[in-house]
Simulated assay, not measured.
Amino acid sequence: MVLPLELLQQFKASDFSDQQEYEAWRSRNLKVLEAGLLVHPLVPLDKSDNASQRLRQIIRGASEKPIETGKNSESMQVLRSAVMSLACRSPDRSASDFCHWADGFPLNLHLYQMLLETCFDASEDGSIIDEIDEVLELLKKTWVILGINQMLHNLCFTWVFFHRFVTTAQVDIDLLHAADNHMDEVAKDAKSTKDSVYSKILSSTLSSILGWAEKRLLAYHDTFNASNIEYMQSIVSLGVSAARILVEDISNEYRRRRREETDVARSRVDTYIRSSLRTAFAQVSSAELSD
């Protein structure tokens, strides 16, 4: 059974007292289907698979033309056909009567990140709710079910703060500070474990954060001005912290070398300064030539 699909088939708008609540519920279930079938499928997707392309189109189109949930609706029949085609595949690509549709642990992480989103006020862009401590205590009860531990929580929470900042117009500096502060816990965790699964997740997450930060820091004259200069310190700190963990605690090359030979923070900051100066100089030279 593909639970999100079954829920979408069993409930319709009239079962909810509030239209906004119904739309949020429908969106959450579609996101879970997307995560389990397209992002973290048990059986890897074939790029030429029509069912996966069809499901992507359905989910993408749902934001413009909402799916009418309920067992007998035409849109649900189309959705069910695409979902079941993907869910009932076996590792040898043959059809199966069983629906082992998602790769459990990655999906669990995805679900936990969605749960952490409840720490933010849905009616205000990015603001942290006052009851955050109580919510986190409740979420901790899901750890045993989802396979989460303190290290994974710290990493997920860092990502959620960072992602929330990025996706809410990058104006709430408190979110950036929170991500930067939680990165300190991630750094401690990275030094205390050699778990290969955690290291893989850590590397992927930090690489995304570092890539975002460096896109802004390698030409910081173009990124920062009088109106947003206060963000620069936290972005530098976040980027340097991510780089240091990736180099010092994940890189095999670093372990083979003497630690005193590498100062990650100094190296990264030096790179940002030199790159930005080169970019600024090139822009000035280009402007002078065009005059």
Results as ranks from 00 to 15, higher is better:
L79F: 11
S127E: 09
R28E: 15
S203K: 01
D92T: 12
S203E: 01
S237A: 14
I129M: 06
I59W: 12
L175E: 03
A51E: 05
H100F: 14
Y272W: 03
N154F: 01
K200W: 02
R259M: 08
Q20K: 12
E64T: 15
S17A: 10
N108M: 06
L55W: 10
K71Q: 14
L107W: 02
D49Y: 08
D180F: 15
P4S: 10
E124D: 11
V269W: 06
K71C: 13
T118M: 09
D291M: 09
S27N: 09
A287F: 15
I67N: 05
I250M: 02
D133H: 11
E253P: 06
W143D: 08
L3D: 14
I59G: 03
R268M: 14
I250Y: 02
V247K: 04
L37F: 12
L202H: 04
L111G: 11
G104V: 15
K194M: 12
Q170D: 11
N252V: 14
L210R: 04
W159P: 01
V2K: 14
A62L: 13
D18H: 10
D49E: 14
S75F: 10
P91I: 13
S234P: 04
A62I: 14
E117V: 06
D270V: 04
L38S: 00
Q19Y: 13
A13P: 03
G61P: 08
S286V: 12
D97V: 05
V160P: 00
S285N: 09
A87V: 01
L146K: 05
G239L: 07
S241I: 09
S276K: 03
I148S: 03
L7R: 13
W159D: 00
R268Y: 06
L45Q: 06
Y272N: 00
E124N: 12
Q77D: 08
T262A: 06
S275F: 15
V264N: 01
E124H: 11
A179L: 05
I129Q: 05
C88Q: 06
A242G: 01
S204N: 07
V240N: 00
L45M: 07
R89H: 07
R89F: 07
H40K: 06
D249I: 06
S17K: 10
A226I: 05
Q77A: 10
F224Y: 10
D46H: 12
E6R: 08
Q20F: 04
V171E: 13
E34A: 12
N50S: 09
I128L: 07
F161K: 07
N252P: 15
L136S: 00
D189F: 14
G36F: 00
R80E: 14
L37W: 09
I173E: 00
S234N: 10
L38T: 01
A179G: 05
F105G: 08
G239Q: 11
R54E: 15
I58P: 04
S275N: 13
L238M: 02
L138R: 06
M114C: 04
Q283T: 09
F281T: 06
S286Q: 14
E117S: 09
A243H: 02
L45F: 08
F16R: 03
C156E: 02
K215Y: 09
E124R: 15
V240I: 02
T205V: 01
L202K: 04
A51G: 04
R266L: 13
R216D: 02
T193M: 10
V166P: 09
L206H: 01
R216F: 01
Q150S: 07
I250F: 02
I145L: 08
F162I: 03
N72G: 10
Q283R: 13
K191N: 14
S192I: 00
D195E: 10
